[in-house]
């Protein structure tokens, strides 16, 4: 499975991209969408909500199950991908394009604690055993 090397990851299968303006974009990984199957619903946090790292902040639901999405780092929600409300299947089509929300990080250094592509690959390998 191709894991983009320009992103950061969490053990709970979120991806994180640091943007040029200092904000971060967050979604769920290709592996997560494969596990869940066809998406039918996404509940995304409101703009302005302040999140603590690892706080439950969104829910994606597939035909199979509901899965919580956790804030990879602390910050304030600055944008949400409202397209997913009517078309949650975008996550299945391209998990790394179908972002859920953007955060203004409380502390950009929090990003250093996240996994890189190689580290996330190891998480997937250990889950497979």
């Amino acid at each position: 499975m191709d894991i983009p090397t320009n992103l950061k990851y969490t053990k709970s299968h979120e991806w994180v991209r640091l943007e040029d303006d200092g904000s971060v974009t967050i979604g769920i990984t290709q592996h997560a969408q494969e596990l869940l199957g066809d998406m039918v619903f996404a509940e995304i946090p409101q703009v302005g909500r302040k999140l603590k790292q690892r706080e439950e902040c969104a829910v994606v639901e597939s035909v199979k199950a509901a899965a919580d999405v956790y804030a990879p780092i602390s910050g304030e929600v600055t944008a949400v991908n409202s397209e997913l409300q009517s078309a949650p299947e975008k996550i299945n089509q391209d998990a790394y394009a179908a972002w859920l929300f953007k955060l203004k990080p409380t502390n950009t250094a929090d990003l250093d604690g996240l996994l890189d592509a190689a580290g996330y690959q190891k998480v997937l390998e250990s889950e497979a055993h």
Binding site: G37, D38, V63, K64, E89, N92
Partner: peptide, 8 residues
């Protein structure tokens, strides 16, 4: 088999 690609 749960699905062969897409349950929907």
């Amino acid at each position: 088999p749960l699905h062969y690609g897409s349950q929907l």
